[in-house]
Design a protein around this nucleic acid. Structure first.
Lengths: 209, 209
DNA sequence: AAAAATATCAAACATCTGTTTGAAACATAC
DNA sequence: GTATGTTTCAAACAGATGTTTGATATTTTT
């Protein structure tokens, strides 16, 4: 059997999409299993609980994302430090998302909505899980940034990085809807790559301000 | 009886805080009425349904916010157009939030978390309600921006405004947690006004990029 | 091919959800 | 002070939720 057609991965696929669309509490296991065309009890059989399913959805996405991002940061670190511009750093952050989009044939906004929801879960188990397991990549990214901009203080970099993440997650999470609005206003549907190409100079200018 | 101690406003207060903390679906009417110390049935008596309660929470916040913002935009419009810098426009967007924070003695992050959640509710009734009733202020703001920066194309302004909103909502929604992290790292607790003072040059630089 | 382990399934379970009910308490008007 | 309208309250309701069960089917191992 194809690895993507197992009951387990069919559940992950359906859950990922539904969680992104509606949120965690708003998505019932019955909705997930109906879309995945599997039995209701198989969620608890394969994942133990709904909580674990949510974590596993994030693990699948984030482990793929961080492994690509880490590879990018590796090559940036080994290359000449003089070429570490803000723009290339930001591209390193975004390009794994575009790669994932192509590979999975799934809109970036799905992943970004998931991330946004994890972020909104301020008191929940999910945010702790995500930051504990994947926070180190953000730390790595911060350190690279510091070496590129030694004139900025540490807390300036800390905050500016969060402004940037806010723009990225917020805009890309809503990118499908925003692109439709923009299409109605300006008679042209932008590709997601164009949106990103517009966004990076905006963010870079802020970072260097 | 004091107007803020009626059953109705006690429910609104409790609901506003709990919705911001946990989300709409994750907050039950029983949790709300327990915190508000009122009877369970009083929600349906005063608001009709949970849906209406959610809308009323937003209406109370947004009507206060937009009325202050509109006043600010009025005075900006009547003043000399040459003084319309990006920074003053952004301040007009944020300062009503600071005013509300003082008046209600409630952290800005509560309001911003609410806004973020309304934004995340992509398919729900809430987003339509909010955009239908309060979208015009954003349009007003956009028009002012266009007049200040005639060199930018309309879709550039559209997108840059959304990048800005992303940064603002995302950062301010998480400002309490972020300020604590920053305090642990840099041994100084920043005031929310300082965070904003740091953010505005960042955003202004991007807007002008 | 028999045995053992793994996976699927329909049904039931206990719990929690928003909402409704009808009586009791309270306030207001005459 | 009685009558009328408004608000509160405990209790119950119907429906949905995550989870468990025990039987059946499927796959893997020997």
């Amino acid at each position: 059997m194809n690895k993507n057609d197992t009951t387990k991965s069919k559940i992950l696929d359906a859950a990922e999409q539904l969680f992104a669309e509606r949120g965690f509490a708003e998505t019932s296991l019955r909705t997930i299993t109906a879309r995945a065309k599997v039995n209701l009890a198989s969620v608890n059989y394969h994942f133990g609980s709904k909580k674990s399913l949510i974590q596993d959805v994030f693990d699948r996405f984030l482990s793929e994302y961080t492994s690509v991002l880490n590879a990018q940061l590796n090559s940036l670190e080994s290359s000449d430090n003089g070429s570490l511009t803000t723009e290339t750093l930001l591209r390193a952050l975004v390009s794994p998302l575009l790669a994932l989009e192509k590979q999975r044939e799934q809109s970036i906004s799905i992943f970004m909505r998931l991330l946004g929801r994890a972020y909104a879960e301020t008191q929940g188990h999910l945010r702790r899980h995500v930051t504990d397991k994947y926070g180190y990549v953000l730390v790595r990214f911060t350190l690279l940034f510091q070496s590129a901009y030694p004139s900025l203080t540490n807390d300036q970099i800390f905050w500016r990085l969060h402004y940037t993440l806010g723009s990225l997650i917020f805009t890309l999470a809503g990118s499908d809807a925003l692109r439709e609005i923009a299409e109605a206003d300006f008679d042209r549907k932008m590709a997601i790559e164009e949106v990103i190409d517009e966004m990076i100079p905006f963010l870079a200018a802020g970072m260097k301000a």
